[in-house]
Design a binder for these strands. Structure first.
Lengths: 197, 197, 197, 197
DNA sequence: GATGAATGAGTCTTCATTCAT
DNA sequence: AATGAATGAAGACTCATTCAT
């Protein structure tokens, strides 16, 4: 029995994660049953369990993997040199989120929302998410320093507060988009700009 | 035991809701069992079910009641005349949220977060939440018009985009507060002000 | 507090029994809840329990009372002198059953059927029903003796077997009527007559 | 544990049905708990539910399967050519019922009785039973035509009424047997013969 | 006598996980 | 390696009955 190749393993994991995303966003993290995911993935129960040790593991992986993918898109934008000005960054990040999260049949934004909720009483998930969001916020704080240096914002502004407010704007965009569905990246950009005028 | 008085009924409902809030924020909406709530409330299963017809009903009531209470605090602030300027409104609302949501033993902000997640696949809850958040956003849009009129923001600003951005800031505050825990109303106020400078 | 009069008590019992008949025939003996009966009767739980000590008691009373009422109609017919000939008796009894059991909103035949089923594992009810049906069968056996005496049937016929067959015909009429609904007393009379020709 | 064979599946279903018959006749259809059946079957809850989707499904299957088995014994007798004369048919069918229904530890006649009762408020069961009993009655009507043709009964007899009366006799036998327990196939045969003389 | 809110044991059913094949 | 049938603990909800008022 030859060992399965690494690519094969990776593609199987992906296949299961994809199934999990679909089910989770359809039914919620805990209302989704392992059987839902198993059936959607097209694999057997045993197979799924050989890739993910438990449902909790699958939840953690589903949320953090989606976050990591999003990070790959967003972080470079934050590290752009020269730093993008606030309203362009707001539009850029929210647009990137929209583009990255909107998949065939599901929307990872909603998975993120579910992850925040789940993290309230799941320490492992909470830690993983905190690492991610703190990294994002730190990168925004760096941008804030550039903004101060280049005179885009006041020189006595606190980078950390600016970063917190900016991150709120983005997180709130995800909430509004998932819950009300009538917001666009443009709203964040122009709204912020006018609020800033 | 002849007919119970209306106040008594209301206080019993409250007692159950209080128990539900504690359990929900501790264990999550679906990870909480009815037995958890029943035990925490100090009542019997039958009694709880005579006030709430199902767990779903209890989830809906727990989330919407907490939202309604919050609305009573926030809406007047939005309707203040003359309208509070943006950064003061941001600080005022986030402070009010903190004060209203922080209870003995639990934090309703986390219940809100769970509600957003649950609303993704619970239409009744989603509708109820949409009504609330749209009302809030509409009120913010009214404030935005005042801001335009009084020259606080540009005359050609779109009130709706300004409202969407502002609401994002507040919603994002709730997320950041629940997830990272290191944000204060002051951050939103000063962050916004500096972003606006 | 003056004791309630006997007529009043009797009419209350009747009221509850009537409610029980309606519910039982609608939902079945065990699928009917005490609350169904309580609500249908228009009385309070306590009131119903002051007339019937338990649900089992109510089931027993509902079935036996309906049987007793039926007996009052059927027994005289069986004791008619001179005895009615078989096919007229068959038609007479089944017609009487139809007339007695068909009430506004329910049909006691169905209650009888439920009683037979319940009696399979309810000894008290079984005994009560056995007393009734044996009495009926004994009366039929008496008629059979008259039939032999008057030459309507063979002189060497066994009255007990004739009675058993005749009673089967009547019981089977109840089953067929409740289950298939397309039988009439006339069918029993003419069917029997032709089978006898 | 790869796919189980069809025979294995069938035998497992049988095992559960057998357990259900035992419990149902002991305790009644609704007084029997799923746990009773589960324990009696020797399987686990999950296993039982993988063969029968609900208690209702199990009730329906228990009753209709027993009916179907009985049909396999009785229908050939009704279709015998030349047709058996009435009293022989009566004795034949009731004897077949006795032989078929009496099992080690339980009696399917009682299950039939419970089925009739249950059918009063269970439409799916009612339909299934109606199909069966109508088929039986139609076959009896065919026999009645033979009887007319061969002069066993009057030429102007109505086959349908004769069939209805005959079926009543058989159904009533089941009732009397289950309720009073002192009837034998012979009683139906001789009782009918003498009633016919 | 009457009321009806409260009790809590008991029921059906689900579902994460395992392991014999 | 893979399969999917089996497990059984746990969960939501019901309902006969009681008893404080």
């Amino acid at each position: 029995m030859p060992k399965i190749s690494d690519e094969k393993r990776e593609s199987r994991r992906r296949q299961i994660l994809e199934a999990a995303w679909i089910c989770f966003q359809d039914r919620g993290l805990h209302e989704t049953t392992m059987d839902d995911i198993i059936r959607t993935s097209g694999l057997s129960a045993g197979a799924v369990y050989s890739y993910f040790s438990s449902k909790d593991d699958l939840i953690l992986s589903a949320v953090t993997t989606s976050l990591a993918g999003l990070g790959e898109v967003v972080i470079p934008m934050l590290k752009a040199d020269p730093a993008l000005p606030p309203e362009m960054l707001a539009q850029g990040i929210t647009t990137a989120i929209d583009e990255f999260t909107t998949r065939a049949g599901y929307d990872l934004k909603r998975i993120a929302l579910m992850g925040w909720s789940e993290a309230q009483h799941n320490e492992r998930l909470k830690s993983a998410m905190q690492v991610f969001y703190r990294a994002v916020r730190d990168a925004v704080a760096e941008s804030a320093k550039s903004w101060k240096a280049s005179g885009v914002i006041a020189g006595d502004a606190e980078a950390s507060s600016v970063a917190k407010a900016f991150v709120s704007l983005v997180l709130g965009y995800v909430v509004q988009s998932s819950l009300l569905g009538d917001v666009a990246p443009k709203d964040m950009a122009t709204g912020l700009k006018h609020l800033m005028a």
